[in-house]
């Protein structure tokens, strides 16, 4: 599912997409969480890189991940990261241990920030920011 933010113009910092991460962002636009998977050693890699971080192989292939994970830790931001986030406070920045292994940063959305806990299961959801950029966010499912 991809949802469109209801704000008129997206004024938060946007990723300047580079060649290493382009397939990741392309996936987000299609509602898929794409991770790199090593064809030689089987390691999952995030964020995107040019060589496998485990075995240095060049054979990193993009595969769709489950989109599921567990909250490793989080914080509730009462002060925004710059003026563009002022309307969002309090918002949750979380570290999510993805089912495939890598740890990923994102926001927990659709929940009262005070109800968020370490260990909760989460699933990816996608938030369209601009025509080029869609951000993966996470919702609590347990």
């Amino acid at each position: 599912m991809i949802y469109q933010r209801d704000t008129m113009a997206y004024d938060k910092p946007l990723p300047v997409i580079d060649n290493e991460s382009r397939p990741f962002w392309d996936g987000c636009r299609e509602g898929k969480l794409m991770l790199q998977h090593c064809a030689e050693c089987g390691a999952w890699v995030f964020y995107p890189r040019v060589l496998c971080t485990a075995c240095h192989s060049e054979r990193l292939e993009w595969e769709e991940a489950s989109g599921e994970g567990v909250i490793h830790s989080f914080t509730i931001c009462h002060r925004p990261a710059g003026p563009a986030f002022a309307g969002e406070t309090p918002y949750v920045v979380a570290l999510i241990d993805l089912k495939e292994g890598p740890r990923m940063m994102s926001n927990i959305v659709g929940a009262d920030p005070e109800s968020v806990r370490i260990g909760q299961s989460v699933r990816v959801t996608f938030e369209k920011a601009t025509e080029e950029v869609t951000l993966p966010k996470f919702k609590v499912i347990s």
Partner: peptide, 18 residues
Amino acid sequence: VTGDQLHSRAYGWQAAGQ
């Protein structure tokens, strides 16, 4: 927002406290 920050700053993660 470039480099490794591609996967952090867009989520409102910026200051040392955050």
